Lab assay of single mutants.
Amino acid sequence: QRITLKDYAMRFGQTKTAKDLGVYQSAINKAIHAGRKIFLTINADGSVYAEEVKDGEVKPFPS
């Protein structure tokens, strides 16, 4: 399943989102408010992988 960072954070909370991605909650808040195009893939085992689309390139998040 693929979902935006904002939607994932709204569904699970910023604290869990940060923990799942290995970053601080403040980084999640800042990324959402900056309007960054970050998409999360939720794997069947429950693990989460995030990618950011920037300038036409897709890069892992966090980099």
Rank of each mutant, 00 (worst) to 15 (best):
46 G>H: 06
49 Y>E: 09
56 G>M: 07
37 K>R: 11
16 K>N: 05
60 P>V: 07
51 E>Q: 08
56 G>K: 08
11 R>H: 08
42 I>Q: 06
8 Y>R: 00
36 R>G: 04
23 V>S: 05
46 G>T: 04
52 E>A: 02
54 K>G: 10
19 K>Y: 10
33 H>D: 13
5 L>K: 00
55 D>N: 13
36 R>F: 06
28 I>K: 00
43 N>E: 10
13 G>D: 02
18 A>S: 07
39 F>S: 04
57 E>P: 03
45 D>A: 05
16 K>H: 04
44 A>L: 11
22 G>D: 06
22 G>A: 05
62 P>K: 04
24 Y>P: 15
38 I>M: 01
53 V>I: 14
59 K>S: 11
30 K>I: 11
20 D>E: 07
19 K>F: 09
35 G>I: 03
20 D>G: 04
30 K>P: 04
45 D>L: 05
22 G>P: 00
46 G>S: 06
61 F>L: 03
32 I>F: 03
7 D>K: 06
34 A>D: 15
11 R>E: 09
4 T>S: 14
17 T>E: 01
49 Y>G: 06
19 K>N: 12
31 A>L: 14
59 K>C: 11
26 S>N: 09
27 A>T: 15
22 G>M: 06
51 E>G: 04
37 K>V: 12
21 L>Q: 00
27 A>M: 14
35 G>V: 04
54 K>L: 15
57 E>F: 12
48 V>F: 04
37 K>L: 14
34 A>V: 08
46 G>V: 02
53 V>T: 08
55 D>F: 08
56 G>A: 07
11 R>A: 09
23 V>F: 04
57 E>R: 12
37 K>G: 07
40 L>N: 00
60 P>I: 07
44 A>V: 12
19 K>I: 10
6 K>S: 09
49 Y>L: 09
33 H>S: 13
39 F>V: 07
19 K>V: 10
34 A>Y: 09
3 I>N: 03
39 F>E: 04
4 T>G: 09
6 K>F: 12
38 I>W: 01
13 G>R: 01
17 T>L: 06
23 V>D: 02
63 S>T: 12
51 E>A: 05
30 K>V: 10
8 Y>P: 01
57 E>K: 13
47 S>L: 07
9 A>G: 03
57 E>D: 11
54 K>S: 13
45 D>W: 05
1 Q>H: 10
56 G>I: 04
56 G>H: 08
61 F>C: 06
44 A>T: 11
33 H>F: 12
21 L>E: 00
24 Y>T: 15
50 A>T: 02
50 A>N: 01
47 S>P: 03
12 F>H: 10
55 D>M: 08
23 V>G: 03
4 T>H: 09
7 D>G: 05
6 K>C: 08
41 T>D: 04
28 I>Y: 01
40 L>Q: 00
30 K>M: 12
13 G>E: 01
56 G>Q: 07
8 Y>L: 01
58 V>Y: 11
19 K>T: 09
47 S>N: 07
28 I>R: 00
43 N>A: 11
12 F>G: 00
15 T>F: 14
25 Q>R: 14
11 R>V: 09
53 V>L: 13
4 T>R: 07
37 K>F: 10
20 D>C: 06
18 A>T: 03
9 A>E: 05
33 H>P: 02
44 A>D: 12
17 T>F: 02
39 F>Y: 13
53 V>S: 08
16 K>T: 05
59 K>Q: 12
46 G>P: 00
7 D>Y: 06
28 I>G: 00
17 T>M: 03
37 K>E: 10
5 L>Q: 00
15 T>I: 13
42 I>K: 05
48 V>W: 03
3 I>L: 13
56 G>T: 07
55 D>V: 05
34 A>R: 09
31 A>V: 07
39 F>P: 00
55 D>P: 06
2 R>C: 09
6 K>N: 08
22 G>C: 08
20 D>V: 11
16 K>C: 04
28 I>E: 00
45 D>Q: 06
25 Q>H: 09
56 G>R: 06
61 F>R: 02
33 H>N: 14
39 F>M: 07
19 K>Q: 13
50 A>Q: 01
13 G>C: 02
38 I>C: 01
57 E>T: 12
44 A>N: 11
10 M>L: 13
39 F>L: 06
14 Q>G: 09
40 L>Y: 00
53 V>E: 15
57 E>S: 12
36 R>K: 06
22 G>F: 05
4 T>E: 09
4 T>Y: 05
7 D>H: 06
29 N>V: 14
30 K>N: 14
